[in-house]
Design a protein around this nucleic acid. Structure first.
Length: 759
DNA sequence: GCTCAAGGCCAA
DNA sequence: TTGGCCTTGAGC
């Protein structure tokens, strides 16, 4: 859906400090110093399905469709010119980010990676890229052989990266995967007809309004986005390999925000440990036998000597500068951490981690073919799964070694960082249960790939990204990216585009405000220092942790209602999202729904959701239905394919949407309503579903009345479209059913191919 | 008393 | 403006 891969730059250069915002008071040692009420408008919104999404409220930004994930991933696999251009951050491009004042010094600073002093932690003195510290095994330093492996792996990485042709294999040729070859099915994420009902980039809230002179929306106006945010996924992994609305639970599992029996992070870790037996490890199956592998030079970063980088160490910088080296620098504790809990392996889980509710698609292990168990070789592939805005090695392109900004080595660093960042997007944020805090800390920052220093604002991130996020929010910076919000964000490039960096912070799950507003904000308005963050949901299950089927009790005792699937996950499956102010979440958060109910709802509504998405994105193309991969189908073409009746109704439906000028919020809300309206008969908590639907209806009504006061009937007209949508689906289903029986109709796969949401 | 996630400081 | 380091203080 390249044609809809529109990006925009919202926002504005720099909103002035809030009136009365005094310079930062001196640190007087605690206490409340200043109350700020501003916030940062999310910088840019890239919505693949909605195309350009410009929040009409400065306090809200919407990423209204989960399908944004797929295009990003696909886009990276099939480079488009714009992506290449974007990746080429060489001379000239920086100037495009005209409103972001970068100095040459900053640019050059990016080249130097991590040269700043660190606390005297063991191994800190070395630049990980130039002189990696001797990797540690769980018994101590790696042997020479192991070192050789690790070193060789690094060399391989460099060489292949430099060539830009072959995916680094980390000394394991069988793990290599040529990037110019089609990705194995489990990694392509393209074979789903319902995959746009997928996970989505995590959504985020902006704590308060940065008006910039624009009055904030009324509460009612904001309620829909809020509701949508909750309904459609308040947090999510960036990518998910899942292909079905059910499979996607892997990233939107009910447990991902489950609150542990105790809110303590420590207890949360404990919970993770309790799960982490090798036998139970969800990773085990993903990687098969990892024991026999020579670590590939990328053995687990976790060692029994965790004190080597325990919490304090992590807080003040670990021993590894580079996430890349962190992969290879340590190995596994067979006692404390199962090899299968290796964060390396865990990083790969996304490539096909079995759905907790449904068996994985495809044959065998989703990680089969050794694709995913290969250290950096995997990383590169995984990076390919990210989108154009997600940095990474650009498949099919040769790294520009003449990059005058950073030089060849820095490019490699960039790529390495990119890979690392990608990995974490798929791992640390979406790590399987059993991954401990320590393991996560040893993973690269999901935003830039740097060393994670701790849990900041809802995710494990590095110190720099933590500081950046804090500054951006506290200072109410509104950055703009004039490059389409597709800038790479890595260690070496993170300074180049704060807009994209901040967007990625949000995307990766950094929170300005806790989704459930009973908890304090991550960014403290009063700037009170000290104290522990009280939101541990993401801590327990960073971002998109999922548990395999039957592991529900891992994080919560039986009967804990928190275990139940949160509505956001349900909404995420609906294919939309938004990250908006959550100030009124407690008012709008719908009832949590059980996973079984979510599945039932999806089973009943998948067709409507698909068709709706298809029609909505076809609003700009009268007479055509925009199907997959940016293609359109006309009625004539549809008739040739035997889909005429269905497409005709879809065109009519689309025309209604066009006439009603359905906007993104209405679209999202309607999707939620459709989802919750499905006549699933086996709902366990039908009352909750109904209550959620009522809230969605109410929010939609308020929204339409607020935003379209001149069309008072809009709400009703929107609702009237739902039966029409359902009839359209029924026509399609009936047509397929009848014609397939006759052996002359279009196949189900064809329809799915047409409708799938990889846009 | 320890942990750790906040905010603050300040050199680069 | 960045990011490493520091202080703070609630939670345990």
């Amino acid at each position: 859906m390249n044609d809809t891969m529109e990006t925009w730059t919202a926002a504005v250069a720099h909103s002035p400090p809030a009136p009365g915002k005094a310079p930062r008071p001196p640190d007087t040692g605690g206490g409340t110093k200043e109350v700020t009420s501003g916030s940062v408008t999310v910088i840019s919104v890239h919505d693949s399905e909605l195309g350009t999404v410009i929040p009409d409220s400065p306090r809200s930004t919407d990423k209204s469709d989960l399908s944004v994930i797929r295009p990003r991933m696909m886009g990276s696999l099939t480079m488009t010119p714009i992506e290449r251009d974007n990746e080429d951050e060489g001379s000239g491009s920086d100037g495009e980010v005209s409103k972001i004042d970068f100095t040459d010094g900053e640019l050059s600073a990016g080249v130097n990676l991590r040269t700043k002093k660190k606390r005297g932690t063991e191994g800190d003195s070395r630049d990980g890229f130039e002189e990696p510290e001797r990797p540690m095994s769980w018994e101590g330093e790696l042997s020479d052989t192991e070192m050789s492996i690790a070193t060789t792996g690094k060399q391989d990485l460099e060489e292949t990266s430099m060539e830009g042709v072959q995916v680094c294999g980390v000394n394991n040729n069988h793990l290599r995967l040529d990037e110019d070859k089609p990705m194995p099915s489990p990694l392509r994420f393209t074979d789903s007809g319902v995959d746009h009902i997928q996970a989505k980039p995590s959504t985020h809230q902006v704590s308060t309004s940065n008006n910039g002179g624009v009055p904030p929306p009324t509460s009612s106006a904001s309620e829909l986005p809020l509701l949508v945010d909750k309904l459609l996924g308040g947090t999510g992994s960036y990518n998910t390999p899942s292909h079905s609305p059910v499979l996607q639970h892997r990233h939107h599992h009910p447990l991902k925000h489950a609150v542990p029996p105790t809110p303590s992070p420590d207890s949360a870790i404990h919970s993770a440990y309790s799960y982490g037996s090798p036998a139970q490890s969800p990773v085990t199956s993903r990687h098969g036998s990892s024991h026999g592998l020579p670590s590939s030079g990328f053995s687990s970063p976790y060692t029994p000597s965790l004190s080597r980088n325990n919490s304090d160490a992590s807080q003040y910088g670990g021993s590894q500068h580079s996430s890349c080296y962190s992969y290879s620098s340590v190995s596994v504790s067979p006692t404390q951490f199962s090899p299968t809990h290796s964060p390396i392996q865990s990083r790969h889980m996304h490539a096909g981690f079995p759905s907790p509710v449904m068996p994985p698609r495809g044959t065998g292990s989703p990680l089969h073919a050794g694709v995913v168990y290969g250290g950096m070789g995997v990383h590169r592939n995984l990076s390919g799964l990210t989108g154009p805005g997600e940095e990474g090695v650009q498949e099919g392109t040769t790294p520009d070694l003449s990059d005058d900004r950073e030089g060849g080595s820095s490019i490699l660093d960039d790529k390495m960082s990119s890979l690392a960042a990608d990995l974490v997007q798929h791992s640390a944020l979406a790590a399987p249960p059993g991954i401990s805090r320590q393991q996560l800390i040893n993973s690269p920052c999901p935003i830039c790939g740097d060393k994670i220093s701790g849990f900041h604002y809802g995710i494990f991130s590095c110190e720099s990204c933590k500081g950046f996020f804090k500054r951006t929010v506290q200072n109410r910076k509104n950055y703009v990216c004039l490059r389409g919000s597709l800038c790479s964000v890595t260690i070496s490039t993170r300074k180049k585009c704060p807009a994209c960096r901040f967007e990625k912070c949000l995307k990766m799950g950094m929170k300005l405000e806790v989704s459930l507003s009973v908890l304090p904000p991550a960014i403290r308005e009063d700037r009170t220092r000290g104290g522990r963050s009280t939101y541990q949901c993401s801590y327990t299950l960073p971002a998109s942790l999922v548990a395999p089927s039957g592991s529900d009790k891992m994080f919560a005792p039986s009967g804990d209602p928190q275990v139940k699937l949160e509505a956001p996950d349900l909404g995420a499956m609906a294919g939309s999202s938004s990250h908006l102010n959550s100030r009124h979440h407690e008012k709008l958060v719908p009832q949590l729904l059980q996973i079984d109910d979510q599945i039932s709802l999806l089973i009943n509504a998948w067709c409507e959701l698909l068709l709706f998405s298809c029609c909505f994105r076809s609003m700009s193309t009268p007479g055509e239905i925009r199907v997959s991969l940016g293609k359109s189908i006309t009625l004539a073409q549809a008739r040739e394919l035997g889909l005429g009746a269905c497409i005709e109704r879809m065109l009519n439906f689309t025309e209604h949407l066009r006439r009603l000028k359905v906007d993104k919020y209405e679209y999202v809300a309607m999707k939620v309503i459709v989802l919750l309206t499905s006549d699933a008969s086996d709902l366990r908590e039908s009352e909750k579903v109904r209550a959620s639907q009522e809230k969605a209806l109410e929010a939609l009504q308020q929204y339409t009345l607020t935003h379209y006061p001149d069309i008072p009937s809009k709400f009703g007209e929107l609702l009237l479209r739902i039966p029409e949508l359902q009839r359209t689906c029924q026509v399609g289903k009936d047509m397929l059913s009848v014609k397939n029986k006759e052996g002359e109709g279009p196949s189900f796969n064809l329809l799915m191919e047409l409708l799938r949401g990889d846009h």
